[in-house]
Design a protein around this nucleic acid. Sequence first.
DNA 1: TCTATTGATTAGAGCGCTCTAATCTTGTAG
DNA 2: CTACAAGATTAGAGCGCTCTAATCAATAGA
Lengths: 344, 344
Amino acid sequence: MRPTMEDVAARAGVSRALVSLVMRNSPKVSDARRAAVLRAAEELGYQPHVMARSLASRTSTVLGVMVNDLRNAFFADIVEELDSAAQAAGFDLILNTGGRSPTREWNALHNLLSFRPAGIILLSPVVPASAIQVAARQCPVVLVSRTARSSTVDTVNDDGEAGSALAVDHLVGLGHWRIAHLDGGGAAGAAQRRRGFEAAMRRHGLEPIVVRSEHTDIGGENAVRELLAAYPPPDRPTGLVSGNDFNAVGAISALEEAGLRVPDDVSVVGYDNTSLAALRHLSLTTVDQPRKDMARLAFEALIERVRGERTEPVRHLLHPSLVVRATTAQFPTRPKAGRPPSGT
Amino acid sequence: MRPTMEDVAARAGVSRALVSLVMRNSPKVSDARRAAVLRAAEELGYQPHVMARSLASRTSTVLGVMVNDLRNAFFADIVEELDSAAQAAGFDLILNTGGRSPTREWNALHNLLSFRPAGIILLSPVVPASAIQVAARQCPVVLVSRTARSSTVDTVNDDGEAGSALAVDHLVGLGHWRIAHLDGGGAAGAAQRRRGFEAAMRRHGLEPIVVRSEHTDIGGENAVRELLAAYPPPDRPTGLVSGNDFNAVGAISALEEAGLRVPDDVSVVGYDNTSLAALRHLSLTTVDQPRKDMARLAFEALIERVRGERTEPVRHLLHPSLVVRATTAQFPTRPKAGRPPSGT
DNA sequence: TCTATTGATTAGAGCGCTCTAATCTTGTAG
DNA sequence: CTACAAGATTAGAGCGCTCTAATCAATAGA
């Protein structure tokens, strides 16, 4: 049997309560006793039982994190950052995944809650708002990449509209005016990105072209094929704003398959700046969400609630930035390749 | 305050013990009482407190999983599979990451252990064997992508030597005979892959060329530049066996940068069959580790130990398979492009 | 010498649950 | 009607810890 506090107390010749004080390094213990207790603990290989501790203290140093999709490196980056923040603040992270399914996610959320964590962070959850509400009644909840109206949960999001606008502005600045958006369908944040695209295009006096797609490479391929069929030259778009990086990679494949060169014939912008985009082989121009900042803010918001320092909700909306790489270029490459509409 | 078992008991008009029986769905409860208890629990929104439960029962349904690198999709796949297996068997997974640093990993391991889990699975851990030994004294431990000599831990690995051999055989079968390996350095499994490469080459009567590299795309780029400098035509290798997929992608970049076409001039094989390799844009020929099987076997091994059904260690060594895509091709493309050595 | 006062230590209750052993119900055979 | 087995229910101790309040020791002030 693993040694308990009682064992340590017996070996050190003190009471269990004193051992408890030492373990929580309370200042009200004499140096001599402290040393004796620590030595006894060391000799026995004693380790506090966190569950017993949290049961007795009615507090928890556990923070639950539910990840929508483990395969998505975007979340991995956020988790890594959360992890070091938690470490520094003396909290333990436990992770979980819902596998992009509302049902499994609901289970995962329940599991997390059954640990009676100090708080939980949900990364792009797909469960209904009511489920989040249930969770929020049990402990502080912070949402990342998902909006909420409830006043009991905090949210951290990137400004998808601004991100799309960044992409459009970049392409317009390069001389493009026939620009299409490959929409992410029902994916998290896809609606904002589409809205931002449309608004930015209109702001430039351009007609937005939107093709319904998905946040996958296959989705990008299909959307491009559809787009090329629907807009044959000379109406063919010369700039593409993809819903995310995967989609952009698929789009590039389909473009090359159709004999078009990127960026010479068509410029492509992704979204998320995943490690994929950074691969030299792709060098995808993309919109970067400030992941570190998002993680940090989410953590801070949670801790504030955990400590009871705040009860009103916060809504962080972070500004993305554009990372220009090799998939976007000046258009027209040679003059006289077309005539911009009067609006520009 | 959240409702406790006592509250449910009071509302249902029964004892706490009876509620406990219902919650663990014991058969020795009358249907009437069971219904009453369940209704009361429902009305109060009662949820059992896992920590209290595990404290009282001295058992745990928690399985700890430590992931070496969250950003690596290989682990994500394994975790997803472990998760559904655990779900089905009535266990709860808690995840953790060590961020590829032995120190952080040691902390993470400690955190996991402090939950007194039923068992733990370590995915490609980098902590010293002694640390694993310490963990194994507390609960069953299974290692994935890491070998061990200790008789108290089970291991699940893919046969890296066989995997490299698969790649070499494929290339030789396509007519290549100048084949180089981009070694993964100190990364997990890199040594086996290199050994397998060398052995397979010798088996074919060919001279193995090994360039020290890393499991990153930058590593692949640098290694290829080095390789091209060291082996100018006509000695230039026509086939590359990379340590992993990232490395292969980097290698392809550097090859194209040098004006060489893949697969026309040089064939490239990756390792791991990550989602990266599957992207149509890359279509990387690669060695596939049977991740699902690995996860399933790891889970089974753990559960057997947890249930006390086995005490001798098991060593699973799984056979990888080759996924042929578009980065490998027949050589020479046209006859008379070289002369194979007599050994073939 | 006797009481405050301060700091160090401990007894003991209790966190929410499980589990054993005891008690309470039935139903049925004698 | 009684006895008793079988099933249903419960009392109560205890898991490993924390926390409050009480106790104890030692010093200082009067």
